[in-house]
């Protein structure tokens, strides 16, 4: 465990060095990410202009969901997508050989291969949105609610990461999966809305297949102090099963690796 923490630190260090190498990108992307916060709230402002609550969510409460959306988005774009694209490239060129030759867990190595530091500014956007939302509500979250929300966020990240690993595993079968990241991004975009706004088939899909509701709505409910213990338990079981499934799928996919050029 300590060894893997050390490895994580060293992988992160390489990404930081890379970010420093291209500091122009660092500044520009950071500024852009903060500027994009405003347009991301516009749809919400338009909807709530007509009524004070939608499906039990007031405007500031819905903003808490948007905050979690930004937080997870920072993670997707900063830690998940860059590594995902790197794995696809590795499989296509056959350079995954070097990952598999290393005496460390292959899933760990590919998952921590590349981070885009400047996307971390999105976390700042999330903090700003939460601050604004709770200011509008006129009270701050209770420490226990913050603790539950952080736990729930951990589960959300686990689910998101598992979905990503399963997506990556398809690269071993179909090689070109670059477009899947766009699909992933556009589906994930729906996570900016509280899950109760979805009805019918979409609700089932976004709860069980791609659990967007669990990812952003559950942590928001936790922070607002109204997440039930059953929901938290359900999310924990779901996250565990997703991680297990991702592990099995990735290991099987590795067995299918044929390398390239020779």
């Amino acid at each position: 465990m300590i060894r893997y923490l050390r490895l994580f630190r060293i992988q992160l260090r390489a990404s930081v060095l890379l970010a420093m190498q291209y500091r122009g990108d660092f500044v520009l992307d950071g500024v852009l990410e903060v500027l994009f916060v405003a347009p991301s709230i516009v749809p919400l402002v338009v909807v709530f202009d007509q009524r004070s609550s939608i499906f039990g969510w007031t405007f500031p409460e819905a903003l808490v969901v948007v905050g979690f959306f930004h937080f997870l988005n920072a993670l997707v774009e900063g830690a998940i997508n860059p590594s995902l694209l790197a794995v696809v490239e590795h499989v296509r060129k056959g350079t995954l050989d070097f990952v598999l030759l290393k005496p460390a867990d292959a899933q760990f190595l590919v998952s921590t291969a590349r981070f885009q530091m400047w996307k971390a500014t999105n976390v700042l956007s999330a903090l700003l949105i939460w601050a604004f939302a709770f200011h509008r509500m006129g009270h701050w979250p209770r420490p226990l609610d913050v603790l539950v929300a952080v736990t729930m966020l951990g589960l959300s990240v686990t689910i998101l990461y598992s979905l990503w690993i399963i997506t990556v595993s398809t690269a071993f079968y179909v090689v070109r999966i670059d477009n899947l990241t766009y699909l992933f991004d556009s589906i994930f975009d729906a996570a900016r809305w509280p899950s109760s706004v979805f009805r019918g088939v979409l609700r089932i899909v976004f709860t069980f297949v791609i659990p967007l509701g669990v990812m952003t709505t559950f942590p928001a409910e936790a922070l607002l102090g109204r997440l039930s213990l059953q929901a938290l338990g359900g999310a924990a079981v779901g996250a565990f099963l997703a991680a297990l499934l991702a592990r099995v799928v990735f290991q099987r996919a590795l067995g299918r690796y044929t390398s390239a050029g020779g």
């Binding site: 390489a14 890379l18 190498q21 350079t95 050989d97 030759l101």
Partner: peptide
């Protein structure tokens, strides 16, 4: 260790 003349493990930008 396997060294391949046609593939590289060095980090390209560092």
């Amino acid at each position: 260790m396997l060294v391949m003349g046609q593939k590289q493990q060095l980090l390209w930008d560092l």
